[in-house]
Amino acid sequence: MKYLQYIVLTLFVLVLTNSCIKEDFDDCNNVTIYFQYLADGDKDVLSDYMTKVDLYVFDEGGHIKGVGTYHEDELKKFAAIPSFKLQPGKKYKVVAVGNAYDATKVVNVEATSFSDIYLQSPEWGDSDKKVTNHDDNYLGQLEFTMPEQEGTMYRDTVTLYSAHVDVEIEIYGLPSPSEKSRQSSEILYELSIQNSNAQCSFENEINTDEKGTIYPDLIYDDTKKCYRTDGFRLFRMDDQFNNHNGVESECCEHTLVLRDLTASEEAAPIFTGRLYNYITGNEKVEELVVKQEAVLPIELQFHNLQGEITIPEWVVVDGEPEWN
């Protein structure tokens, strides 16, 4: 278990004797869990990044006991609402999953090891569907022992950590949709990321044995005169709890592929490039990718139909994305 994930924030731990308003204490909740996210600073900014947190509760043996959901209003107010009842004197583990929406599915939740429970896209493994994106997920976990005394309210805080990378891809030098086809404004290029990380465990670790292809949507930006992604995310590419030296090769086997959909199916892609080589070959890019609020900026320039990955100008100038 990783010490960063199991950190017990003593400043936030509070055990209070609480008189239940009901005669039978068995009907009363006795646990309140709060959440925090520090991003790349030292202040809680969770409500700036998360609008929903699902809390999975496990007994000491790792068996699932239940799931609760905290919504935006509760997260913003840091509401001290007792959320469930647990047995006094027993040990428990909880895992918080941030922003698990339509692009997130939790699989194998009956497993008794957090390293075998995964976040993934609902479309992974379905040959009839393409994966197009991931949610901006966050993960955190906590172990604790309930007070022995009946009628005691236990309060604690789970710290969450990023499980994703925001990927911004801009493609210059290709004909616009209207230039490409006079009959349609349809995007006639297909972008894909092959060997993409398909699963992230409840330990917030990449399952390096499970890879797949993701097909982010492309839009054409008339202002910038480029094709680009919008709100595209991948699972992380570093081992943030064991290795702070940068991107790990096993976690970053991604290959960027761009195809011209007007060409024959047998035609070669118009561009292919390994993301690991690009990231590790550019120090400023790698620094952005290993942050909590990780960003992977990619600019693909075409000259005479020859493509080249370059670093966006904002990375070279000040290392901060223009949308921050």
Rank of each mutant, 00 (worst) to 15 (best):
H303L: 15
M1K: 10
S184I: 04
T51F: 08
N108L: 02
G173T: 15
I64S: 12
D156N: 15
S196A: 10
N197M: 02
A163L: 02
N197A: 04
A267P: 11
Q36G: 15
N245L: 10
E293D: 12
T310Y: 02
K77L: 12
A80D: 11
K284Q: 09
A100T: 01
D128T: 09
E287N: 10
E313Q: 14
L300S: 09
C20N: 14
E286Q: 14
V8C: 07
E322W: 12
Q194T: 06
L75Y: 14
N133W: 00
K129S: 03
H134S: 05
A263Y: 06
R274Q: 13
D27I: 14
Q199S: 04
E253P: 11
Q183K: 12
K91H: 06
A268Y: 01
S115W: 06
Q183L: 14
E186V: 14
K284A: 06
G89R: 04
I214W: 04
M1G: 15
L305C: 02
Y92M: 05
P147F: 10
L300A: 11
P177Q: 03
V8A: 07
A268G: 08
C226I: 04
W314Y: 13
E123P: 00
K224A: 13
R182K: 14
D40M: 04
G66D: 04
C251D: 09
E210Y: 10
I214E: 01
D166T: 14
T208W: 02
Q5F: 03
S127A: 01
T213Q: 03
N133F: 00
T51A: 05
Y6S: 05
D239I: 10
S178C: 05
F232K: 01
M237N: 02
K284F: 08
Y138V: 06
H244N: 09
W323I: 12
E266W: 09
I187S: 09
M1W: 13
G281H: 05
K129M: 00
D217H: 10
F302Y: 13
L188Q: 15
E179Y: 11
A39L: 07
V315S: 07
N324F: 00
D73Q: 15
K22C: 12
